[in-house]
Design a protein around this nucleic acid. Structure first.
Lengths: 357, 357
DNA sequence: CAATAGCGAAAAATCGATTTATCGGTTACT
DNA sequence: AGTAACCGATAAATCGATTTTTCGCTATTG
């Protein structure tokens, strides 16, 4: 019975102390590696720790010190492969340095983003990896600044005057996509994007447009931007293609600036019975595992998740360790995988039907 | 300068108290909603809180009480849609009750799973939602039991003698798949699975086999199980189909018991130039967004993520609130979406080539 | 009128660690 | 011899809240 109770309540530093016949302060010193303890006493402390199965209570321990060995990570969502991989990688890097990563998702809401950040501030996290919902100018970054938090911004950011940023080199990747599509002979291209993430999308769009116009000044680039959510995009795209098809001047290729856009585009093609690349070519920003196993495989821009995570953690820990100096904006190069969804226009003018059923 | 210092150090309950001209105890009472405080004083406290921007320090606050308003969630991985959605849903439900959810992934390692669990125990989380790497008999569940933690097991579990479990009704869903495939006339079916998750996979396999045999006693069911990781599955499957094709008795349908298996199967079909459903039919356990936009759309068993998350949180909070009684094992019904990847065998005996290029 | 009950708020104990101040007991130095 | 330095360890203060105890004051009651 007494044993049972002893098992229920977890041992404190005082239990260890009285068991080893020393004071709590001595136990604390032994465990924190202070050398001014008689070896004999140290051994008895360690024995008692072993016997009782004592573990330091991190909350009590951390209450005095300013920072805890915790890194907070805030992602816009967890559903997509990209952010899932990102969290996994960040976890690994944090673990390597003896830190714990706690992850939370803002679920695409700036209000929740700030709320989570405030909670992490309460927890006294040593640093935050923030993938903002919109861009680096949102309220969350402001909160971090106002409260003197240490952090790094990733993904939907370009550069900031207070925090280091790490993101994919969208512009360069988009330029490469432009080269490929123009090279295949496309002269009328639709670009699909989401307005929310202002800066990043603009970089992707400009990178694409500039290069395309330079290579083929006569090129026609249509843009369908969806301001708010993904939902309306489906309708927008349907309208767009209906009008274009009626007018007889529909684009020969689509470049989607984000993953869900690629899905929506594919689903629209499907609805019309179009197939890639015979009826239309498709390239999407962001890769996913399934894109390799579809018929045909979908061409995609692959973001270097591991590199972004690694560099973000690298600069974050440098700041945590007190490094000063102006914030730096890092861009990691993407890989562009030109798969079968891209071909040359006009080879088969218009199938309409489809080759199945 | 003095203002700057005031901004730097975050206000404590004593700052609020002295500002409002009351004691710290009174502040605490006001904030925790105790009614035995004179309205006038309460107002002054609230004003001071507002003025100083005071927030309760959760570290100090929780130190006294045994349980913290934190729920821990441990998932095997974050990369897949399923667990990503799961974490999102859990987060939502925790938020509804004023709890914070901290998520971590064991990255398919039982050692890490236990390590994370120990850390959460140190944090004195109120409860844990554990999606074990293998099944309910792993070391993590043992750790939870030994330390008297409150928790609920989900996904890769059937039933446990110490913890409530919530999972998808794999057996029933598999039976439905069997009915559909047999109904379409399939008499030779390959089932692809991963051995790791023992109990769940067995349930899916048995559910399928039993029903299929009952409906068509002459049916032939091949099974390719991969014990360790997904990697070897690719080779196993390739071997399997090579032998079968040589023997001229290849199956007319494949049922994959897990998502990655579906991808591997698709990629193998692709390699052989087979198309669904003309050359072979395919059903996968676990749905994903992309399955609707491929040609053809892939039939899938949809796990009720939201229901599983909701019920897990429901039973977990009941246990946290002190409910006794034997653990219950809940099974949530799945939806089976029979999409175009399933057809009748023999309609087009063997295409081999493919309908593109 | 004295004893008691009730109310609101302050004082003090508590949670589990860390850190600083203190203390007894040697040893070394002037 | 007197004191300074030092060593190892303990007592006590601290972190920021919550909770229990105590206390002063007013209102009720026999």
């Amino acid at each position: 019975m007494a044993q049972k109770e002893a098992q229920q309540r977890r041992p404190s530093i005082h239990d260890v102390a009285s068991h080893a016949g020393v004071s709590a302060a001595t136990v604390s010193k032994v465990l924190s590696g202070v050398t001014t303890v008689k070896p004999e006493n140290a051994q008895r402390v360690l024995d008692a720790v072993e016997l009782l199965g004592y573990r330091v209570d991190p909350l009590a321990s951390d209450m005095r010190r300013a920072k805890r060995r915790i890194i907070g990570a805030i992602m816009p969502e967890f559903e997509s492969e990209f952010f899932g991989q990102m969290v996994s990688e960040l976890e690994g890097f944090a673990e390597q340095r003896g830190y714990t990563l706690v992850a939370a998702s803002s679920r695409e809401s700036e209000a929740r983003e700030k709320e989570i950040l405030a909670r992490m501030h309460d927890w006294r996290v040593a640093g935050v990896v923030l993938a903002p919902v919109r861009n680096e100018h949102g309220p969350a970054a402001g909160f971090m600044k106002a409260n003197g938090m240490t952090g790094v911004l990733i993904d939907r950011v370009l550069a900031d005057d207070a925090f280091d940023t790490v993101s994919a080199d969208s512009a360069a990747a988009s330029a490469e996509v432009a080269r490929a599509l123009v090279g295949h002979g496309h002269r009328h291209i639709l670009v699909v994007g989401l307005g929310q993430q202002a800066a990043t999308v603009r970089a992707r769009l400009e990178g694409f447009r500039n290069t395309a116009l330079k290579l083929a000044p006569d090129i026609r680039i249509d843009v369908v931007l969806c301001e708010s959510d993904v939902g309306p995009l489906r309708a927008l795209l349907h309208d767009y293609f209906s009008k274009r098809e009626a007018g007889g001047d529909r684009p020969t290729a689509v470049y989607s600036l984000f993953l869900k856009g690629t899905l929506v585009a594919l689903s629209e093609f499907r609805r019309r019975g179009w197939h890639c690349p015979n009826d239309i070519s498709l390239v999407g920003f962001d890769d996913a595992e399934w894109m390799q196993v579809t018929w045909p495989a979908i061409a995609a821009v692959v973001q270097p998740v591991r590199e972004i995570a690694g560099n973000a953690m690298e600069v974050l820990f440098r700041r945590i360790e007190g490094e000063r100096g102006p914030p730096r904006a890092r861009l990691e190069p993407c890989k562009v995988l030109m798969r079968e969804s891209v071909g040359s226009p006009g080879s088969v003018p218009h199938s309409g039907g489809g080759d199945r059923q």
